[in-house]
Design a protein around this nucleic acid. Sequence first.
DNA 1: CCGATATATCGATGATTGTCAATATATTTC
DNA 2: GAAATATATTGACAATCATCGATATATCGG
Lengths: 115, 115
Amino acid sequence: MAARTAPTSPITTPCCATVGSTDFDVADATELAKGFAALADPVRLHLLSMITTSGPGGACVCDLIEPSGRSQPTVSHHLKVLREAGLVTSEKRGTWAWYHVVPDRVAQLRGALAD
Amino acid sequence: MAARTAPTSPITTPCCATVGSTDFDVADATELAKGFAALADPVRLHLLSMITTSGPGGACVCDLIEPSGRSQPTVSHHLKVLREAGLVTSEKRGTWAWYHVVPDRVAQLRGALAD
DNA sequence: CCGATATATCGATGATTGTCAATATATTTC
DNA sequence: GAAATATATTGACAATCATCGATATATCGG
């Protein structure tokens, strides 16, 4: 805690003024942080980009491995991270797996960055 | 690489169709990933929220420590991460340090999540 | 100059992460 | 059923991270 009385800001705000009126929900923060953590890797951003720009049928994993520049197990791992973060869903059709973006989850994270 | 010929999607998209037309810039992805990594922690989201909702004079660190529920060195560390990610700037006025949000950087990350 | 205070840095530690090779599972084709 | 293929899982390892206590640096008030 601030024991000494803080000085006045050179502008108009007094020191130690209440920072905003909205209470910060720690549970929400943890959920958002998990989402952002999934985006905190260039390979996963690349994967998400490819899945996003794929058609309505989704993106086949077989098309994601080579452009990612990573091994198949590594790509599978990153897709799992994206899935568990709620950013994509997967669907198996025959031998192939197809991934789709979850627009609502992306929008939620985008909305958290509103100004 | 996909040695076997892939089947047709149940919808209209053929398998292994080219996923999107926009080339993915790896350098951009790395820069974006660094930004999202800074947001991938509940404590930093809380700090950023408090700094964002503070007035034009910025947020005094002395006001951020107690609500964060973390020790002073830990808060200092997280603020450094946010600073090095370009999300906030710091200014020292006397004994106190004041932090400001960098709206352009936040907007850049938000824009990367566009649908 | 001295004591008090605000913030940053250092050092250590336990936890998490990204990566790949090896292996497992499941599906298709012959 | 056997061989081939697509994807997932496991195990290991180096690297990074979140956290705190201790300490350093700097500023203010007397």
